[in-house]
């Protein structure tokens, strides 16, 4: 029993170490990929970013709307319904924007990356590239990783903007909060450091989500079941990592704020 726990722990360390080496390998290839294969990166930003826009915007609109409803009904108890804008903006910029976008990203782009790369391995496409003297890490993995890292902060920004629009729609247009008060409160309370916190978070989540998707795909067992498992693991592990990291970054940011 203790032995099994010990072996599981060792296995975890081994995987974690391998993941870090893999990450370094990706990082090392980034400059050359930027210079030689810029087009592939653009293509992957489109794949991971533009194609996730609809889902991100739809979810953003409704999350913003919920914030408007909840904020208004709860703040009304303190006669502070004018602060619904601040409430929504804080929630979106610092937490919901980066976190929900990362979760959506894992579900939409992460799974497609993992299964695509896993299937490329299963059908010998990666071996074929190696045989054609092309490094699959540079041709396949790095562009997809970078595409995710670049797309993520932009998606989070879009999510927050659309969310704020949703909150405005519900708070101002539906429930009658004064539009001037809505925006003025936001302007008075939100500072650049709040925006930065959101950007940093979404950047970190972008790295984590893309890295895990590419890693799971690359190391998938090359069978139908193996690729399926890799896809599932991508979503689950990304979600866990994002939420844990969110807690850690928030804790650090609040300490720096004081």
């Amino acid at each position: 029993m203790f032995r099994e726990i010990w072996y599981t722990f060792l296995e975890f360390l081994r995987t974690f170490g391998a993941l870090q080496l893999f990450f370094l390998q990706l990082l090392r290839s980034i400059p050359i990929v930027f210079v030689r294969r810029f087009r592939l990166i653009v293509h992957q930003v489109y794949n991971a970013g533009a194609l996730s826009l609809v889902i991100v915007m739809t979810c953003g609109l409704f999350v913003g709307g919920v914030l408007g409803l909840q904020g208004h009904s709860n703040l009304a108890r303190f006669n502070a319904e004018d602060s619904v804008g601040t409430f929504a903006a804080f929630s979106l910029l610092k937490e919901l924007g980066p976190v929900v976008t990362a979760l959506l990203f894992a579900g939409r782009a992460g799974t497609s990356l993992a299964s695509e790369i896993g299937l490329m391995r299963a059908t010998d496409q990666l071996s074929a590239m190696e045989m054609m003297a092309t490094n699959p890490v540079r041709r396949v993995l790095v562009p997809r990783f970078l595409g995710g890292v670049i797309a993520m902060p932009m998606l989070a920004a879009v999510f927050s903007c659309v969310g704020l629009f949703g909150a405005h729609l519900v708070g101002v247009n539906l429930l009658g909060v004064d539009a001037g008060a809505f925006w003025q409160q936001i302007q008075a309370t939100i500072g650049p450091e709040d925006v930065w916190e959101g950007i940093i978070k979404s950047f970190v989540f972008g790295i984590v989500a893309s890295l895990l998707a590419v890693w799971e795909g690359y190391n998938a067992i090359p069978t139908a079941a193996g690729v399926g498992r890799a896809t599932t693991r991508t979503v689950v592990i990304t979600a866990i990592c994002v939420l844990i990291l969110d807690f850690m970054i928030t804790a650090v940011a609040i300490n720096f704020g004081d």
Partner: peptide, 19 residues
């Protein structure tokens, strides 16, 4: 190694075309 592989052409069992 990549220099050597450029001298090889390989036909994979299932083709291994880039999809």
């Amino acid at each position: 190694l990549f220099g050597l592989r450029k001298r090889f052409g390989m036909l994979f069992q299932n083709g291994a075309l880039l999809t």
